[in-house]
Design a protein around this nucleic acid. Sequence first.
DNA 1: AACAAACCCTGTCATTTGACATAGCCGTGC
DNA 2: GCACGGCTATGTCAAATGACAGGGTTTGTT
Lengths: 264, 264
Amino acid sequence: MARDDESATGLGQADAGHFIRNGGERCGECPLADCRGLHQHKPEIRDWIGTFRKGEVRYERGDQVFVQGTRPPYLFTVLSGVLMRTRLLEDGRRQIINFMFPGDFIGLQAAVDGEMGHSVEALTSVTLCAFSRTQFFDLVIQQPRLSFDLTWLAAHEEAALEEHIVSLGQRNARERMVALAVFLVQRGLDTGLAPEGILQLTVTQGQIADMLGLSLVHTNRSLQALRRLGLVDWTLTSIRIPNLGEARRFANLDDGPSTPRPYI
Amino acid sequence: MARDDESATGLGQADAGHFIRNGGERCGECPLADCRGLHQHKPEIRDWIGTFRKGEVRYERGDQVFVQGTRPPYLFTVLSGVLMRTRLLEDGRRQIINFMFPGDFIGLQAAVDGEMGHSVEALTSVTLCAFSRTQFFDLVIQQPRLSFDLTWLAAHEEAALEEHIVSLGQRNARERMVALAVFLVQRGLDTGLAPEGILQLTVTQGQIADMLGLSLVHTNRSLQALRRLGLVDWTLTSIRIPNLGEARRFANLDDGPSTPRPYI
DNA sequence: AACAAACCCTGTCATTTGACATAGCCGTGC
DNA sequence: GCACGGCTATGTCAAATGACAGGGTTTGTT
């Protein structure tokens, strides 16, 4: 648990992340291999990816994995845990852009631009699979299949942001909350984090407010209203949706068929 | 100008688009070649792209290029004009997701998924460069450089949506409008559509309202307030920002360095 | 000339959401 | 035990935004 390896990993600019494993060994034991929501690589591609990976990194809840405006040395695939992307305005306002689940790729903007336009913070303990930013496009360009997968992930992240824009632009406070809860529970189901349909995830009301563009107080009242209505029961540590279909109808959501996602 | 070629092009599901030129000839005269905001391909790559293109299509203001929920046969690069992406909810509410300018690629989601999650509508007369959807990934996979460019475009579109999410979540009505105006004028400058810093583009107040998640009436009043303040003069047919720096400060925007964009 | 459509503007009032202040709960550390 | 910090809850009032209704201008059509 010593952190003296931080400077060596170049992760010093962010909080507290440290390598728990080095190099490409053990890609055969990738924890994502038994995630049913993910499309699995053929063994030869998986092993080939392994030659590029730099190891596994661990962060704890509250740690900043990326800091807005910096140039991270590593890009990551989420192996376990949940994170969020946030953007800060100069005057202190904060907007949470999206949440990230196992299989998601972190740092595409940095891969392309060098610099991050947002921060990434761990919401739980997380383990990440690290790739070198400078080597990353060698990896992608040498394997067209991975290039496709990366584009797939980017297009789907774009679709998720679109949905979020629709929420912020067209839905009122309660509808937004239901939409967000459904999104999170669905992703939890797809990634095995919500086994009983209940997502165990610690999200404060302040974070919900910053995601949905609402004040903390109004978020609190709306959450209570949804609890009374029996639509969503969202506490500090878990999200429960008694009737997913009803919740979807309430928020005017179409049921995402949730095709299996690729990962790198 | 006859439209009897529509069924032959398979564009019948959308409005009124029709081919004005076929095949890959004349890529050497691409109208994007002298757009200073774009990164130009080397001639051999440009010619190679030409072998894949199916021709040029033209649409008029108000035409639907893609319809939400359908599987378009073509994907496009914008050669001239401006379009918008919109999403409809079942109950009729509409959210405008983003605007598209020359050089932008239309249909990435369709390329990856087959089906469109949003519609695309022309805001001016537009000409588009058409590629076959089914051939598209051959194109991208055979040229790693294009694969990189596509990922670049996807990552930057994602960044633009992030900025829009920040607007909707954190900014009030006036700040949102200023942010949108600055974004549009900046893109106009980059693509040569706003030569004097004034973007000639017909956007109704109803469209602004649907982009910013505001009511039509409130949009009207806020626009007038901004006009009185001398921050943004936005009429039906043009957007003028007397002082770009001041406008940026007002809306808490950081000045985008606007790196040259690639296109395909 | 008459009409309709699309757009912009204004007035009045209702609803949603935010601001501020305060209190309670529950861990943690001393 | 006590103080503290982080989080959730409530009350009251204010500000932002939306709803509805109506009028005006321009443009195109018959």
